[in-house]
Design a protein around this nucleic acid. Structure first.
Length: 748
DNA sequence: AGAAAATGTCATACC
DNA sequence: CTGGTATGACATTTT
């Protein structure tokens, strides 16, 4: 094998030189790095670090283990087909990947924020007919890009050389998020993108698209609303808003005596931005979110720092601390506040809200003619204010604004808010926090007792099939080890020599058997650190101390001696003596023993023959007890050897599968987290918008005396029939309490 | 030379 | 029960 390798290598070089002389350009490197398995195998050897994919290639080409015919079931070892396919995908993705990163950078501009999450978009997209306004093509394209995300990445991984292993795909995903955040801020991606130049135009366009879609709720929604249109969430259709244009014409059911004659201006609704305290509240809320999400982003702080010149936190915090009264609101007139655009989204977060105000609505005058059906089922009678503030902050609100200012939210805790918070906690707890994530991984590793951080060496693509066939075809009877392939011919000749009528008619059979038995062996090697042996166990197991393995195994002492002694100069052809010695060394111990015992057939036959044929073979010869014993031992050992190889291969495969599973799960987790971030951002934007609309509506309300209502004493509420009611706070609080219980009950 | 990886062997359990 | 496989734990060989 060694000489063959050398020979081929040199031959290849010479051939290359020849070709280059002729004028044909040959790049040897491409041959070495491309998929020419046998060549590579021969040149680099089966045990090179490139062997990693050989293994998988074997599986790919042979569709399973090309091993002993009796091991057909091995493929079933992995119970799930999915794992198998993952393993197969493994060798495509196995190569890490700077270029993958670059590709991502390149690619990212295409996926705009909200449109790039088709799976998670369930809520966002279905609810946002507004997006369709920009054109259906956009959505389709983005969906496609997103879907192709992982696969493309994996495909590219095959050609991407590893450069910076620091950036995992998870990192990339999170960088992606950061980018989008910057788009939110209006920062063009080209600021950070080195590789986008060739696509600059597209990027710009996409950026614009992304920016617009990013503010779907604020921007386009407001725009659509400004056109006095309601947009159907599902179809994207627009239709004239039916919201009454003049809210001041509303009547109110509240007894007039309950209204304080004059309210201080600073007792505004906490939703209003004029006062300081509500603003602080909102600010706190935004800060909270930014903190949480920053924590989430810290996973990739290093990665992001590579790409950002600014600290990673900055863009985020800036982004998330958007003032509640961003210009979004300014174009929103009251009737536009129809909330048609938002309603469906709210149904996502508080679907259980619907029937809340049934009781209250009877006593309250509707603000709106009940023809706005989009409001009906979605907002219900939810006290809108409840959406705006997290429950923890309610207390803060009271503290800062003073006890005299009733909580405009009526203590309503929107379930969506709770969910959001818990989600964020989840995000922080479940691995977005890098420290904990690493701890988790360590735990995993230690639990399994296996080191999963195999070094992802660049895969070579030499196929085990090629090597096995070459080795087995070069010899007829290699029993096991690859190095013995040449010796097997020697063993057959030896057998011939010392043997009674060993005929060559079974050569083909031997070939087959050898192939079947040997074909899978040497291919898996250095690419996974297998430390399944725990050395600490060895010392503490008493029974191991006196385990003196006698590998002669039932062999008679005489036979032993004979086996260990060199053959008594039986070689007649002196010219071949050296070669014979060489081959002698290549022989396995069992072969030596067999030869010493003058076993009249090859070890290969002994091992691989079916039982019946084996017995038949034995019956043909008059063999001594020692010979029979040796033969049986050889057979047993040979079979066990193959079994061990199988076992190791399987073990390795299992490890690789687990590793792949871990990677997949991590990828999934990153994707889900990314989706969640976007989801939350959308939610936040919607809340902002609803808040502003609430302010607008409430601010325009006047009582019969033309004075504004006090936010501390009145609140707006949406009734089940789609109407908007102005109710006293006390009533709102009661309903809020009722509302808190109801959904929970209904859920169970 | 010696560490580490690969491979072989044995004992044992199981089919 | 026999013959075979699977696997942990070593032993030996190879790198």
């Amino acid at each position: 094998m060694l000489s063959l390798k050398k020979y081929l290598t040199e031959g290849l070089l010479q051939f290359t030189i020849l070709l280059s002389l002729i004028g044909v350009r040959v790049d040897v490197d491409t041959y070495l790095t491309s998929q020419l398995p046998p060549l590579r195998e021969i040149i680099l050897g089966p045990s090179s670090a490139y062997t990693q994919t050989q293994f998988h290639n074997l599986r790919n080409t042979l569709d399973g283990y090309g091993i002993h015919p009796k091991s057909i079931d091995l493929d079933n070892y992995f119970t799930a087909r999915r794992l198998l396919s993952q393993v197969r995908a493994l060798d495509r993705f196995q190569v890490p990947t700077t270029e993958v990163n670059a590709w991502l950078v390149h690619r990212d501009p295409e996926g705009s924020v909200s449109g790039s999450q088709p799976s998670a978009g369930l809520a966002l997209e279905s609810s946002s007919g507004l997006q369709d306004v920009t054109g259906p093509d956009n959505g389709v394209r983005e969906s496609e890009t997103e879907q192709g995300f992982s696969e493309d990445l994996e495909d590219l991984g095959a050609v991407a050389p590893p450069v910076s292993g620091d950036l995992t795909k998870e990192d990339i995903d999170l960088i992606d998020i950061l980018w989008r955040q910057d788009i939110d801020l209006g920062a063009g991606r080209e600021v950070f993108d080195y590789s986008h130049r060739q696509k600059e135009q597209d990027v710009d366009k996409d950026l614009r698209d992304g920016g617009e879609q990013e503010d779907t709720w604020a921007g386009e929604g407001a725009e659509a609303l400004a056109r006095n249109l309601l947009v159907d969430g599902e179809t994207g259709e627009s239709f004239p808003a039916q919201f009454p244009a003049d809210v001041s014409s509303l009547t109110e059911v509240v007894p007039s005596e309950s209204e304080p004659p004059a309210l201080e201006n600073n007792l505004l609704s906490p939703l209003l931005t004029g006062t300081e305290s509500p603003f602080d509240l909102e600010q706190q809320w935004q800060d909270l979110m930014s903190i949480m999400e920053m924590q989430a982003m810290e996973v990739n702080s290093s990665a992001s720092e590579i790409l950002y010149s600014a600290p990673p936190g900055d863009p985020l915090s800036t982004n998330y601390s958007l003032a509640p009264n961003t210009p979004i609101n300014q174009n929103v007139s009251l009737h536009q506040a129809s909330l048609g655009g938002c309603s469906q989204d709210f149904s996502l977060f508080s679907p259980e809200v619907e029937s809340l105000s049934v009781a209250g609505s009877s006593t309250l005058l509707p603000l709106v003619p009940s023809n706005s059906t989009s409001l009906n089922s979605t907002f219900g009678s939810t006290n809108l204010a409840g959406l705006f503030f997290p429950p923890q902050l309610n207390g803060t609100a009271n503290d800062t604004a003073g006890p005299e200012l009733p909580d405009p939210l009526g203590g309503l805790l929107d379930e969506a808010m709770l969910d959001e918070i818990s989600l964020m906690d989840l995000a922080i707890e479940e691995g977005f926090n890098p420290v904990q994530a690493s701890q988790l991984e360590d735990e995993f590793d230690s639990d399994s007792g296996l080191s999963l951080d195999s070094s992802h060496s660049p895969s070579s693509l030499s196929s085990s099939e090629g090597s096995s066939t070459s080795s087995s075809s070069s010899s007829s009877s290699s029993s096991s080890s690859s190095s013995s392939s040449t010796s097997s011919s020697a063993s057959s000749s030896f057998s011939e020599e010392g043997a009674v009528g060993y005929s060559s008619d079974s050569e083909t059979l031997d070939l087959e058997e050898a192939e079947g038995a040997v074909g899978y062996q040497p291919e898996y090697s250095k690419f996974c650190r297998m430390s399944y042996q725990d050395p600490s166990q060895l010392s503490c197991l008493p029974y191991l101390e006196h385990v003196g393995h006698n590998h002669t195994y039932n062999m008679a002492p005489s036979a032993l001696d004979a086996a260990d002694l060199p053959p008594p100069s039986a070689l007649k052809k002196g010219s071949k003596e050296k070669q014979a010695d060489f081959l002698d060394k290549q022989m396995s111990r069992d072969e030596h023993r067999a030869r010493a015992m003058k076993i009249p057939f090859t070890n290969d036959k002994i091992i691989n023959l079916p039982v019946e044929e084996f017995n038949e073979l034995l019956s043909k010869y008059q063999l001594s007890e020692a010979q029979l014993s040796l033969i049986r031992d050889i057979r047993r050992r040979g079979k066990n050897k193959m079994a061990a190889q199988n076992c190791r291969k399987r073990k390795l495969d299992t490890i690789l599968n687990l590793e792949r599973d871990v990677e997949d799960l991590q990828r999934d987790k990153a994707r889900l987290l990314r989706e969640k971030v976007e989801f939350l951002r959308s939610l936040r934007q919607m809340k902002q918008k609803v808040q502003s609309l609430y302010q607008e509506v409430f601010g325009r309300l006047r009582d019969e005396n033309g004075r504004p209502y006090s936010p501390s004493q009145y609140a707006l509420q949406y009734a089940g029939d789609g109407s908007v009611l102005l109710i006293p706070r006390t009533m709102a609080d009661q309903q809020a309490r009722r509302q808190e219980r109801k959904p929970k009950d209904r859920r169970k």
